[in-house]
Amino acid sequence: MVMDVVVLAKHVPDPQGTPELGEDFLLRREGVDGALDPGDEYPLEAALRITEYHGGEVTVVSMGPEPAMTAIRRALSMGAHRAVLITDPALRGADALVTARVLASAVRRQPFDLVLAGIESTDGYTGTLPMTVAELLGVPAATFARRVEVNDRIVRTERQTEEGYDVVECPLPAVVTVTAGATEPRYPTLKGIMQAKQKPVERLTAADLGLSPEELAPTQSVIAVEAAPQKAVGEIVQGDDAVTRVADFLAEAKVI
């Protein structure tokens, strides 16, 4: 049972850096160090393990400007076989629906058994894009999986819930979103990094995907940004008095 697995990946500003908004209210992405979204390494690791076990290939699909190649190279050096990068100035400011249309159109160009994604991006936190992609592809989605395994063309997951977890079984093809911690992502090896340079990266524009200008027009826009009210500076204590001060604080709050 050879598997064609697609992983949706996003290039995000360095999560350790300090993100800023530009004058157009969009996140400043130029001149900012970026990386593969750490949340995307979990689905990628899951995809690599599935294809290592069953055979098959992992294709990484990403939308973003040229620097997104950094994220693609990382994914390829971890072991993904090939990548598709959709870059188009028309996609600047794309919202979740536009992004989902672009990604779904790119995924549809090749055979796929499984589309894996993180549960939400580290910069935007929208957390609904894979479900929208699933609906556009007309396939089921087993979301919020903390465990994924594939057998006999059925994907079986443990789905995170408010109270614990559910076991979900779903026939392929399907979209699965994978939580952080579901797998332990591997580090790229030196060999992996060298091999990544030879792996095919297909570059597409919005026109290649046959999407109309209407389908690419964002339907949300930021109209105002203001600083949140700053909290007054609190009291800082250290040393021997700290224990008494915290106990007093809890007593003042009437919780002890």
Partner: peptide
């Protein structure tokens, strides 16, 4: 298709 077969609290 995506069938919830067990629930665990």
């Amino acid at each position: 298709k995506a069938h919830r077969v067990e629930r665990h609290e």
